[in-house]
Nucleic acid binder design. Sequence first.
DNA 1: GCAGTTCATATAGCGTTGCTATAGGTGCTA
DNA 2: TAGCACCTATAGCAACGCTATATGAACTGC
Lengths: 241, 241
Amino acid sequence: MSFEGQPPAKMRLLRAAAELLANSAGAPVSTRQITQLAGVSAPTLYHHFGDKEGLFDAVVSAGFEEYVAGERDFAPSGQPLEDIRRMWDNHVQFGLNQPELYLVMFGNIRPESRPAIVADAEALMEEMLNKAAAAGQLSVQPREAARSILAANVGVTLMLIAEPVVDRNLDLSTMTRDAMIYAVSSDQAEQNGSGDSGRSSVVVAAIALNAALQASHSDQLSSSELKLFLEWLHRISTSPT
Amino acid sequence: MSFEGQPPAKMRLLRAAAELLANSAGAPVSTRQITQLAGVSAPTLYHHFGDKEGLFDAVVSAGFEEYVAGERDFAPSGQPLEDIRRMWDNHVQFGLNQPELYLVMFGNIRPESRPAIVADAEALMEEMLNKAAAAGQLSVQPREAARSILAANVGVTLMLIAEPVVDRNLDLSTMTRDAMIYAVSSDQAEQNGSGDSGRSSVVVAAIALNAALQASHSDQLSSSELKLFLEWLHRISTSPT
DNA sequence: GCAGTTCATATAGCGTTGCTATAGGTGCTA
DNA sequence: TAGCACCTATAGCAACGCTATATGAACTGC
């Protein structure tokens, strides 16, 4: 997190607050700790930031801008939905790397003090989804999809933060992520991310197709063909992960 | 919120805390306010609840147990997925009715102080999902689905709480809810509401499986089997709507 | 080169917070 | 009635967020 370009005391306050917040492990961070670490007196803090929350907002803004900047640096992959997956994962990683910052941002949001950051995050997500919509891959409004996906993203990240580090399981994130994208995209063949989630997506798709075939009395295959088809389907569905 | 059966001072503390918390509009509630309203002195609070957070936990527990009780009173509709929708809506409504309580429960959860309530909520959701799984309507493990849905549910509720009351739009909740259930359920023709995808679920599933197979290099079928399998898949995928 | 203004920082301390060391009362069982 | 838990109160500590006030430095206009 860099705070260049700020007057020295202001910058040192930001740095001190960020550092203490990052290492506080849930304990509240006091203004006295911050001003002491910054080598500065109390009124300086209030001169620059108004109050404690103002300082924290500034820290969060800086952190979030960095996150957004990193987000934008991704070369678009040409697959908007893939970009959105990467965005989701980045969001989760940001939260897990800086849980205190994240809790300040998304854990304590209230109507009267809603950080503009939430709106920024929504806008960023919407921007990505616009590309997906332009490519005909979206079945709902980009704005609504963005809000929906972001809400789920926040919920998942908070849940993961709340879990003891040892049994944090990112499958929760992957699964929810894909569920949201799946539900929002029109071209569901786009699904299944590259890499390690590929196989389990095959299984899911096979399960879905299996169930769909059972219910639909499709007549595209003869009964003998169908029998063999279902057998293969079963073999795929029960393949080891 | 009822606290019957408690010793008088303890009960009055719980009631006072609940009332102040409900009307605090985001402002922090002090132990002095609570003890004064309860007509009790400070040490009494600490005797019964250990510390402030202990008291808040107790308030939250009582509120949540009431919510759970109401949840269980629903006569099962026979359509598990419909019950889950109702459960989701109830959760959101609970959060919007008691935002302060809700933020204490889900907004500030940390590994070292994770309320057992989250686990309870997960268990409750899982219980419902088990019925769906028994009815063959689930394409993923009930436990994972429960965690995933609950995470999204929490995220949506927090987002709605963060919004000014005037432009709160429950469509965010409905859409995310249906997206999660849609993605988690096996029988996607079962979906109501936005079933406007046009294509039959068989086709969608076949397309999905096709794409998934292309990307995953599955070795569950021999190359000749796979060739025929894909051909059939293609035939299903291109069947007339 | 100097007065006026503005910005940045410091000393000291106010009121409130969460919490506790200590002790007194109350009602039960023996 | 003695003893013993349990519950509650008085008084006060250390830490908190924050501010009234004052001092120094840097720039501005003449």
